[in-house]
Amino acid sequence: MERRHLAYFVATVEAGSISAAARQLHLSQPSVSQAIRELERELRTPLVVRGRRLTLTPAGRALIGPARRTLRAFDGVRAAVEEVDRLAAGQLDLAVVPACAVDPAVRLITAFRERHPGVRVRVREAANGTGGFDALRRAEAELLLHDHPAPYPKHRAVPVAPGPLMAVFPPGTRLPDGPVGLAELSRHEVVMGASADSAVGTWISTELAASGLPALTVAVDSAHRDAVVHFVLAGAGATVLPEPAARPAGLLGAVIRDVDFTVPRHCFLYHRIGPLSPAARALVALAEEQAENPPAHG
Rank of each mutant, 00 (worst) to 15 (best):
A215E: 14
S222P: 10
L216S: 00
A219D: 01
V229H: 11
A194H: 06
P179D: 09
S205T: 13
R225D: 15
H188K: 02
V220Q: 02
V218E: 04
T206M: 11
A215C: 02
A199C: 04
G172A: 13
G172N: 06
A196S: 13
S198L: 09
P171E: 01
R174I: 15
P179L: 09
P179C: 06
F231R: 10
A227Y: 04
R225Y: 13
T173W: 04
H230M: 10
V228T: 02
T206A: 14
D197I: 04
R187S: 11
S211V: 01
M192V: 14
R174P: 08
D221L: 14
H230L: 09
T202F: 06
V220W: 02
S211G: 06
F231H: 15
L233R: 11
A209D: 14
W203T: 05
M192T: 04
V200W: 01
R174H: 15
V229M: 12
L213K: 03
L175A: 05
A194F: 07
G181F: 08
V190L: 04
H224S: 09
A209P: 09
V191A: 00
V200L: 13
S198I: 05
S198C: 05
D177F: 05
A223L: 08
S222Y: 10
A234N: 10
H224N: 14
A199R: 04
L208Q: 05
V218P: 06
V191H: 00
V232T: 13
S195H: 12
A223Y: 01
E184H: 04
V190H: 10
T206K: 08
S205K: 08
E184M: 08
A223R: 00
H188L: 03
H230Q: 13
V191R: 00
D197W: 03
V190W: 08
L185N: 04
P214R: 04
E207R: 02
R225Q: 15
M192G: 04
D226A: 14
A219T: 01
P179I: 12
A227H: 14
M192E: 13
A227N: 08
R174E: 15
L182T: 11
V190M: 06
V200Y: 00
T217E: 07
A210L: 02
A227S: 12
A210R: 04
H224W: 07
A210W: 01
G172I: 09
P176I: 11
G178W: 11
M192F: 13
L216Y: 00
L216N: 00
L175Q: 11
T202H: 09
G172Y: 15
S222R: 05
S222D: 15
T202I: 06
D226N: 11
E207S: 08
R174G: 07
R225V: 10
S186K: 08
V228W: 02
A210N: 03
A196Y: 14
A183M: 05
V200R: 00
L185K: 04
E189Y: 07
T217G: 07
V218S: 11
A194K: 11
G172D: 03
V229F: 06
